[in-house]
């Protein structure tokens, strides 16, 4: 494995981390449209909290996918063709929630608004759940042949472990969304988001314990990398404790940063367990390895130069746009 290959494995992980940190609260806020927010005015407010940002947040996913294609096409090809139906559903979910914000604002009737609110809520929920499910199934190991083609059956990606993974990611996103709303709103919404987060954090703790146990039995993480896996699992629990402290002590920034870092911790946990593979096959000889999956050194070098020169500029205006809209919204 070359340094460039390692760098790009890390970079793909960084991009997915960025995606889950940012789109994580987008998904959460999307779900609150039909749960936390109870009046039309409140729904307007929660949608406006992500209004200027959700599109750019989603670009992190597109960039992660593009970076995977540009660095590890074997990974991209196997993953995307293998998880065909899950990705189809994810696409439909992302499409429905993507258009919902713009379409809802043009609706004249309550029924029309209601439809697009549900589209946003269900789309956000499904996207979060299915991503969690897909990545959990991916690290568990899938039926992959020597050519790298995956032909999975329903139970390969829908099983207890992947469902728990999906629920855990959904819950993490939902709480991250509530923490974002606490930061971006005022009055009853802000208070209610705090109120709702309290019991949900105890559910999350339970979910994390179940997930850790299933992780032990369903993956080789604990046998192949016991120490780093344990550290990352403990880190997840610690971050959740910090977020819970932020909820009970009403420290809004602490909750938000902790819930965001928990999502990143999950991505790191999965990528750490994957290493030095990119796809885990049931039959270990067919697992796809970083050293075999990548593009040529020429392309990796080229992409490194381009990514490292463009990313800083992009991050400057990306962060600046958050600073511009750094305000609480009144109901």
């Amino acid at each position: 494995m070359s340094n460039l290959q390692l760098l790009w494995f890390v970079l793909v992980g960084v991009l997915f981390s960025g995606f889950f940190f940012l789109e994580g609260f987008d998904f959460g806020v999307g779900m609150t449209i039909k749960s936390l927010a109870q009046t039309r005015a409140e729904r307007d407010v929660v949608i406006h909290t992500i209004g200027p940002h959700w599109d750019a947040n989603e670009v992190w996913l597109i960039t992660a996918g593009g970076a995977m294609f540009a660095s590890f096409p074997m990974w991209y090809a196997t993953l995307f063709s293998g998880f065909y139906l899950i990705l189809l559903l994810i696409l439909v979910a992302l499409i429905m929630r993507g258009v919902s914000f713009e379409f809802r604002s043009r609706m004249e009737s309550d029924a029309g608004r209601n439809f697009w609110e549900w589209a946003a809520a269900i789309g956000s929920f499904l996207a979060a759940f299915l991503f969690g499910m897909m990545f959990t199934a991916m690290v568990k190991g899938m039926p992959i042949d020597a050519h790298g083609d995956m032909t999975a059956h329903f139970t390969d990606y829908v099983n207890l472990f992947s469902i728990v993974g999906g629920v855990a990611v959904t819950l993490l996103c939902y709480l991250h969304g509530l923490n974002f709303i606490r930061l971006k709103t005022t009055g009853t919404l802000r208070a209610r988001a705090l109120q709702w987060a309290k019991p949900l954090y105890w559910v999350l703790f339970a979910g994390e314990v179940v997930f850790a146990i299933l992780l032990y039995f369903n993956t080789d993480f604990f046998t192949k990398k016991p120490i780093s896996t344990l550290i990352l699992v403990v880190a997840l629990v610690v971050l959740t404790c910090l977020a819970t402290w932020g909820v009970y002590g009403n420290h809004e920034w602490l909750s938000f940063i902790s819930s965001g870092l928990s999502l990143i911790d999950v991505v790191v946990l999965l990528f750490n367990g994957l290493f030095p593979r990119v796809m885990v096959a049931n039959n270990a000889v067919n697992s796809i390895l970083i050293k075999n999956a990548s593009n040529s050194p020429y392309t990796l070098h080229l992409m490194t130069v381009i990514a490292l020169s463009v990313l800083p500029i992009m991050l400057v205006y990306f962060i600046w746009s958050y600073w511009v809209f750094y305000k609480r919204l009144a109901s």
Binding site: G65, F69, A307, V310
Partner: peptide, 24 residues
């Protein structure tokens, strides 16, 4: 992948971030 992925990733990095941020 060695050829096609690069422009796709660059498109996302350079163009998509730019248009989505500034349209917001």
């Amino acid at each position: 992948g060695d050829i096609f992925g690069a422009p796709l990733a660059i498109e996302a990095l350079v163009a998509f971030f730019m248009e989505s941020t500034f349209i917001g």
